[in-house]
Amino acid sequence: MADVEVGVATEVPEPLELVRLCVDEVVIVKLRGDRELKGRLHAYDSHLNLVLGDVEETIYIVDDEDEDVESVRTIKKQSEMLFVRGDSVVLVSPTR
């Protein structure tokens, strides 16, 4: 068995550290079901449950009536304050 170095990994930031730095910043959140949110992150937890303010939701809908002509429609919705359940979240990304 290979030697395992102990004590080196303590300063490696956790992935959630990135999300912590996004608090009170505008973020893009990709969700399951071809949805995307853009809004100011007010709260999160380890499940990636989120609260976003001034949110714009974009839903992507692929119309494939004809086999070769594939067009994507988008629906946009606004919300002043939104709680998002973490099990729908795919990724969180800072905008800057």
Binding site: V23, H42, A43, D45, V51, E80, M81, L82, F83, R85
Partner: peptide, 25 residues
């Protein structure tokens, strides 16, 4: 049931965002 929820739209007047951000940190 909590697991079937996608979003909850909230009244922004009922949310103290500063308090929420402090609690999150």
């Amino acid at each position: 049931r909590g697991s079937v929820v996608r979003y909850v739209h909230l009244p922004s007047s009922a949310v103290d965002t500063q308090l929420l951000e402090d609690a999150t940190r």
